[in-house]
Design a protein around this nucleic acid. Structure first.
Lengths: 205, 205
DNA sequence: ACGCTTGTTCGGATTCAATTCGGAAAATTT
DNA sequence: AAATTTTCCGAATTGAATCCGAACAAGCGT
């Protein structure tokens, strides 16, 4: 950000620009949105964009950050409930909330996720990964028997990355080969089967 | 493509442009490559780009298509060998080849995959998905006992999407939290455990 | 080999979006 | 209410993408 807004009026301008960024991106996609469009939607002059943002990229960057922060804020309060559920229900619950979140406001965040996963690829989603890792850790602590599972960091990595991508990809697909419930159920089965099999393998020793 | 090259000379020009596209993309990333750079690397005038490509985007599109086609050509001959192996080895084998393929030529295709997954998101990778689905089908036919598994299309969808993304993401990450071998082993365990657990569940009936 | 048609190359001219800049307007401070 | 700081703006600049028509090369029938 080139300059910090100090007056109330300026803060409103910054908000309007970011908001306009979401609207423009949802309408035409990130590549096709111009600075003039964003400025028009926000109701400010083009020059104003550059008072608070280095360039167009930074507007998208701030949008990504807000998206990730909102996602985390959505997940955090779910954690206490989720960690007490059986594994399969826990996954289904989390995925259901995630889908609703992505689709809210005319899929604002779904479109953003698609973009965030594209350009940044790791930069901004990292805090989200961290939150989900935290969720996994807490889940394991609530289910001590699962602590025997090997390779927990690896499986966590796979499920978080693969899971997020599969869901975003699926929701973006206008003609998906499977339903969302099948996908969610599949991911839940994947986790629960892995857990059960691992525990069965370790038990005999 | 605006026009088809009919003479040999023109075909060479088209090839040089696509080749230059790969080089420029590997050096600076897709967003920072200009038409002039591509033209300079290819050793042609900027105007020549537009003889055979509608616009810069189309150059990237053709690159994506070539990448996917090459990936498929890499996988096809592996199928007969892979389908005869135990599930875990089969996955490890496939992933190893995939990694080597992505990293060849100074990671040319890895950089391309990152981009292909970004903008297109489904358009051009679809043939690859199809090839991998075919591989799964053939694998199942060589291991009839696995046909009892439920939700095969769903699991196939998850493993293909989540697997490709996890691997590409991991290879792009300059400081990955786990090693590639751990990732590959984890994916292989994921598949094999799921398979074993599903077969155990269906057996008793 | 020669003229004619078609295919190819090129780089300057054009278009369009991103970014800059300097001054006007609004808010805040003195 | 003057001075100072903050904010806003849109015309001007910059640079990249794209167009275009002239010049060059290849194929082809005679």
């Amino acid at each position: 950000m080139a300059r910090k807004p100090v007056q109330q009026r300026a803060k409103a301008t910054v908000d309007a620009i970011v908001e306009a960024g979401f609207i423009a991106m949802a309408e035409r996609g990130p590549a096709a949105t111009t600075t003039r469009q964003i400025a028009d939607i926000a109701g400010v002059g083009v020059g104003s964009l550059y008072e608070y943002f280095e360039n167009k990229e930074e507007i998208f960057r701030v949008m990504s950050e807000r998206f990730v922060a909102d996602t985390i804020a959505m997940i955090q309060p779910l954690i206490p409930t989720i960690v007490r559920k059986p594994i399969k229900e826990a996954v289904l619950d989390l995925l259901g909330h995630f889908r609703d979140f992505l689709q809210a406001n005319n899929e604002r965040y779904l479109k953003c996720a698609r973009y965030a996963m594209a350009l940044d690829f790791e930069q901004h989603v990292e805090p989200l990964q961290k939150t989900l890792s935290e969720l996994v850790t807490q889940y394991l602590m609530h289910h001590p028997e699962t602590l025997k599972i090997r390779n927990i960091p690896t499986m966590s990595y796979i499920m978080i990355n693969g899971g997020i991508y599969s869901v975003v990809r699926h929701l973006c697909d206008p003609a998906p080969p499977i339903t969302f419930d099948e996908l969610a159920g599949g991911l839940a089965d994947m986790v629960s089967h892995y857990t059960e099999r691992e525990m069965a393998l370790v038990e005999p020793q």
